[in-house]
Design a protein around this nucleic acid. Structure first.
Length: 312
DNA sequence: GCATGTCAAGTTGTG
DNA sequence: CACAACTTGACATGC
């Protein structure tokens, strides 16, 4: 068989069939309790989530999946202005920290790449000071989590354009330069499907020494004149120049490529959507598909990759 | 039990 | 102008 390179696939955040769940709580609910009660509930949920993360990594390792994206609200509402908290305020924090120790060791032993994808509220190109402040706080939270689990990547989009892409990118650069080390050293920028194409982001990334995560689905939604092969080559050499393994995203549109309106993700990946220029590379491909682990395992089979179990 | 509306946050494009 | 879409689901509430 081929697969000369070491292409590996990543699972994103949650499971469809596997009984591994992450719990949540809203600020509104927390606000109906006393502070002591809030922290008790939060501690319970955080411990539950750490245990779920352990199970998630075990599942991933057993199924030959090489990467896992951790959902942002692993510690729900930690950065919330009213109900936010510090890890050390949680009753039983020692047990939680112990769990993280196990996770770090397991990750290393099994060579699983961990990443975060802070959501759309994180906008470093914003012209509003409040938005930048909130983003910095949220990114700092992700940096702390990344230290705790030994994650390698904190991946965000470039944000809005505000009628002037050049000045927006200028603000983006300035704000990236101001990030603290735990965040800056892990930050990556991903092309999106409405504003920033690979052609826009590559010069920024190359000048800052920040890797670019290449989402080929977004590139197909927002073409920029560069071919998939050209982008792939530049992205790969950027990651390699930093001594790191490239990251890509793949997904298939639920309603086919013809439908003009929004393109929600399909349950599975159509193997025809997998860029041929990725075959044989050493890289990580996060699978963004609603069938989650089932889609990753399916795609691995379709592409002739085998899980650890099956030998090879 | 099960159905349904609600969740902190930003920006853009569509109807 | 309101709302969906974005990695989307889980939780709280009311029947």
């Amino acid at each position: 068989m081929k697969n000369a390179g070491k292409l590996r696939f990543g699972l994103c955040c949650i499971f469809r069939r596997e009984p591994i769940k992450f719990r949540q709580v809203t600020a509104k609910t927390l606000l109906s309790f006393s502070r002591v009660e809030q922290l008790l509930r939060l501690a319970e949920i955080c411990l539950h989530n750490v245990n779920s993360l352990k199970k998630a990594l075990s599942f991933v390792a057993e199924n030959g999946i090489g990467a896992f994206r951790i959902l942002s609200p692993l510690f729900p509402r930690l950065t919330h202005p009213q109900v936010g908290y510090q890890l050390d305020e949680l009753p039983g924090v020692e047990i939680i920290r112990k769990g993280f120790e196990e996770i770090r060791r397991f990750r290393q032993d099994h060579d699983i790449r961990l990443s975060f994808h802070p959501d759309q509220f994180n906008v470093l190109s914003s012209n509003r000071e409040q938005v930048i402040r909130n983003t910095n706080r949220e990114l700092a939270y992700h940096g702390m989590l990344a230290d705790l689990v030994d994650a390698e990547v904190v991946n965000i989009h470039a944000g809005g354009v505000y009628g002037n892409k050049e000045s927006a990118l200028e603000r983006l650069k300035e704000n990236i330069e101001k990030l603290s080390f735990p965040v800056r050293s892990r930050l990556t920028l991903e092309n999106d499907d409405v504003s920033y194409s690979p052609k826009d982001l590559l010069p920024v990334c190359e000048s800052l020494g920040i890797p670019m995560v290449y989402d080929v689905h977004h590139h197909r939604c927002l073409p920029d004149g560069l071919s998939e092969a050209e982008v792939t080559e530049r992205v790969v050499s950027l990651w390699r120049s930093l001594g790191r393994e490239p990251c890509f995203h793949i997904s298939s549109p639920r309603n086919g490529w013809d439908s003009r309106a929004p393109k929600p993700h399909a349950d599975y990946i159509d193997p025809a959507d997998f860029p041929s220029c990725w075959t044989g590379l050493t890289a990580t491909v996060d699978v963004e598909a609603k069938a989650k682990e089932l889609a990753v395992i399916d795609l691995q089979k379709e592409l002739g990759l085998h899980s650890n179990k099956s030998g090879e």
